[in-house]
């Protein structure tokens, strides 16, 4: 259904790559679907990137191991699946990063990927990051009385992990951890009040909206990063025209990823707005949360990591990329 991209044909040898993925094809995997399609088209089918969904080649959390041992040539990973495997990349999961637009999403990731620590930890696993899947900002959806003021959060138990969970805890909420698929029944049963997910796409795919009363639309407590990674060894072995093809394709397939999220939102947002109460916060409130609650969490993260790498420098770099100062 996607229009084809005007890329020049590339001559080259026959080649097959295997890529390890979990779940099934979905909006968040548009980037790899597009990569596989476009590579095939540009090389007239000479280069096949075979997508193995459903953890057929590896458990999602062991994809870095798979790359490391040469079990496959590419994979998608999520930084928060294994914080200690990619401590530097966790910078993208810090709470309340001031990301406001798609451009911000791109800039912040480019900056992180260029940082020496992120490069080093990928190199350790024999991997290199090819492109992000640009996971959207999280928002929170839940049942019961909506948290219109910051103090309202105190009454809520929220499924949220990592830095987002820590900020919510500082605000006074109770973070809980469950598998994503348990959230629906949790909210329905009232054993948890709300859940943070990438907005809107994950909320709707886990059907949280069916058991919820409200959602936040500009709380934007943070995001995470699920990049497409390639085996460095396999990449180095590519003929140069194939390497160039990958570079040329990246902005195009990233654009397809953007369109995929946009389409999902266009479908979901009106439905959510009609069914649920939309909670919006003023800039003032968000800034207050950033200063009072998020900054300490970021400082804690810097403290924890500074013995291993220049964590403060990494945070500053990310803020600079967004045109802000940390």
């Amino acid at each position: 259904a996607q229009s084809s991209i005007p890329i020049d044909k590339v001559e080259g040898p026959k080649l097959r790559w295997d890529m390890s993925l979990w779940g099934t094809t979905r909006p968040g995997t548009r980037i790899v679907d597009a990569l596989s399609e476009q590579v095939k088209e540009a090389t007239d089918g000479n280069w096949e990137i075979k997508l193995h969904y459903g953890e057929a080649l590896s458990k999602a959390r062991e994809n870095l191991d798979g790359i490391s041992i040469g079990a496959f040539d590419g994979a998608m990973i999520c930084n928060f699946y294994h914080p200690k495997k990619n401590p530097g990349l966790m910078v993208l999961s810090l709470p309340f990063l001031p990301i406001d637009s798609w451009d911000d999403h791109v800039k912040v990731r480019k900056a992180a990927y260029e940082h020496e620590q992120v490069k080093r930890e990928m190199r350790r696993w024999g991997a290199r990051i090819y492109s992000s899947s640009y996971l959207p900002m999280y928002e929170i959806m839940g049942s019961g009385d909506p948290p219109r003021a910051v103090s309202d959060w105190r009454a809520l138990s929220v499924r949220a992990g990592g830095g987002i969970g820590e900020v919510l805890a500082k605000i006074g909420a109770t973070p809980t951890s469950t598998t994503a698929t348990e959230v629906y029944t949790g909210v329905q049963q009232g054993t948890m009040d709300a859940a943070a997910f990438p907005f809107t796409y994950a909320h709707v795919s886990y059907r949280i909206h069916e058991v919820s009363d409200w959602f936040t639309s500009n709380f934007s407590p943070g995001t995470a990063d699920c990049p497409v990674i390639l085996s460095a060894r396999a990449y180095d072995k590519l003929p140069s025209q194939y390497q160039e093809l990958l570079e040329t394709l990246e902005p195009h397939i990233a654009e397809q990823q953007r369109i995929a999220y946009e389409n999902v939102d266009a479908e979901n947002l009106p439905m959510l707005r009609e069914k649920l109460t939309e909670i919006e916060y003023t800039d003032q409130v968000i800034n207050q949360i950033r200063e009072e609650f998020a900054r300490p969490v970021i400082e804690e993260w810097i403290e924890e990591n500074k013995k291993d790498f220049d964590a403060r420098g990494l945070v500053q770099l990310v803020f600079e990329a967004l045109g802000k100062e940390y």
């Binding site: 959390r61 191991d65 490391s68 928060f80 294994h82 200690k84 495997k85 696993w125």
Partner: peptide, 19 residues
């Protein structure tokens, strides 16, 4: 060597980051 990778390069669980 699966253990060794986790030991040398680092690995942890998702939520409470148990090694």
């Amino acid at each position: 060597s699966h253990f060794q990778r986790a030991f040398e390069y680092g690995d942890s669980t998702m939520d409470i980051e148990i090694v």
